[in-house]
Amino acid sequence: MWFPPDWPGLSHSNFNRHAITFYNAGSMDTVENEVMAADAPTIRARGLCKQFADRKAVDGIDFDVYPGKCFGFVGPNGAGKTTTLRMAMGLTPLSGGTLTVFGQSIADHASAVRRRVGIVPQADNLDPDFSVEENLYIYASFFALPRAQVEARIDALLAFMSLGDRRRAKTTTLSGGMQRRLTIARALINAPELIVLDEPTTGLDPQARHVIWGRLNELKSRGKTLLLTTHYMEEAERLCDELIIMDHGRILAQGPPRELIERHVEPEVIEVRGEEGAALQELVASSGCRQERMDTSLYCYSRDAAPLIESLKGLHGLKFVHRPTGLEDVFLRLTGRELRDQ
């Protein structure tokens, strides 16, 4: 029986300490085992490093992914998100640290671990030589699943991903959203406990994105563990129970989305677009809010924006937006506002 830790108030380390006290009667080893059984992380990384010839892609990160949760990595391009996922799936060797998945060291058990995982890659790599259902059959054959089971699963997955009427279509004739859905269906063919998604909705239109968010939430409600990377803050906020903001291979912040927002930025922001002027500068400065500037926009963060809103209304023709802060603000604050190219 697995008891969820008191999420999000209690950190894992606190929870473990608590459990260790509880099981104090046994030897240290037994205690560890009991704790593992009660609260075993699906993935545990300690001091994880990846060194490429010219750069350090991942620079000593720790994290735990717990069963039934959605865990996200967000960060700018080149932050080390994909490399971390690849290490977790045994698709690239670690340069340092330890990494266990389902309690097994990934270095020695990559093939056994992948039997229980569904992987959705960043770019679709469906087989262009095959139809929708053939893609699923072929993929199932790599897991050596029994034929009858595969047939039942394919029917269920095509229905789940709303692809039932495209069964015999060539994958090259599918829209981007359909290809993505098929890639996710394919990753579910082995009924995985853990689903790993590298930027699941990049490049999709808003409708297609919403469909995928809905399906991922449904998978989570069925008890699947999700691990995803994204650079859409909205996606992270909607899906993730816990997330890591990373940059240059390091963790900048970690926690549930709401908590990160409370911890790192003021609750409200006023965004003034495309306006400059001494009057504005003076008003903003005197309001005492924290200012940030990006391109032609000015961001004023504060705990109570009402007074500044009143005074901004006095400036003729000024356009501004007042909104509660979100992950985007946390992200920009932590990773800086300069433009990232690969």
Binding site: R114, R115, P121, A123, L126, D127, Y139
Partner: peptide, 14 residues
Amino acid sequence: PQKTYEAILATPLE
């Protein structure tokens, strides 16, 4: 170009 191996490597195959 077709990334078929990438897809296969996401399964238990090596």
